[in-house]
Amino acid sequence: MLLKLYPDNPNYREFRKIADVLKDGGIIIYPTDTVYAIGCDINNNKAIQKIANIKGINADQANFSLICSSLSNLSEYAKVDNTTFKMMKKNLPGAFTFILQASNNVPKLFKSKKKTVGIRVPDHYIPLSIVEELGNPILTTSIHDPDEVIEYTTDPELIHEKYHKQVDLIIDGGFGKNTASTIVDCTTNSFEIIRPGIGELKL
């Protein structure tokens, strides 16, 4: 199913439907402030496994991230010291994935052997509204095909054509970008950019 949302006049009742799909173990594809992503409710292990299968990877070794609606509930999912928190506050919401030490609340299937978790608070009303309505973060991973000349598909109709049989809902929020988020490793003493992207880090 393809659901079109309009940023100038969003119908917030649609977010209740999206949250219901996620609560039922559904998989969604949605826009972010960078590329389109695929996601599910972090509390549904079967859905997490489905996403791993779609990506062709092992769920326990995958570098999935969480999309949170704000920094307020961050400590539930990651261990953050004051210096890191202040730096993140300067940069979020924004096009960043911050790699942090995972807390015990991160579901076991989601947690990689490295015991770290990626945290995103994107500057985009669609994923933020979904998480608000759902009441907890969603698991997220970018949609891309490394074999293609263009690494990220930006057209939601082409995404629908490719993935509609594998997922429950595709949200059309207009054309996406073709550059991903900036990944910042916060697990050492310095904030190391391990993948440059759209976000320009303020320290």
Rank of each mutant, 00 (worst) to 15 (best):
M1R: 04
P7M: 08
D8K: 15
Y12S: 05
F15A: 11
R16C: 03
D20G: 13
D20H: 12
D24C: 13
G25M: 12
G25R: 13
G25C: 11
I28G: 04
Y30I: 03
P31D: 09
D33C: 05
V35E: 06
G39K: 12
C40Y: 06
I42E: 04
I42D: 03
N43D: 05
K46I: 08
I48D: 00
Q49T: 14
K50L: 01
A52Y: 07
G56N: 03
A62G: 10
N63G: 04
S65A: 15
I67T: 04
C68M: 13
S70N: 14
L71C: 11
L71H: 12
L71G: 10
S72N: 13
N73D: 11
L74E: 03
E76A: 04
N82T: 13
N82L: 09
T84C: 11
T84S: 15
M87A: 07
K89E: 14
N91V: 05
L92S: 11
L92A: 08
G94N: 01
G94W: 01
G94L: 01
F98A: 13
I99S: 10
A102G: 11
N105P: 00
V106Y: 04
V106K: 05
P107M: 03
K111W: 12
K113I: 08
K114F: 10
G118W: 07
I119P: 11
R120H: 09
R120D: 10
P127A: 06
S129E: 15
I130K: 01
V131I: 13
E132V: 02
E133P: 00
E133C: 07
E133Q: 09
E133D: 02
G135R: 00
N136R: 12
P137V: 11
I138V: 15
L139M: 15
T140L: 02
I143R: 11
H144Q: 05
D145T: 07
P146M: 07
E148D: 14
I150H: 12
E151G: 01
E151L: 14
Y152E: 05
L158V: 06
D168F: 08
L169A: 09
I171R: 14
I171A: 11
G173H: 07
G173E: 07
F175T: 08
K177G: 12
T179W: 00
S190W: 01
S190H: 11
S190L: 08
I193H: 03
P196G: 01
E200P: 00
L201E: 01
L201A: 01
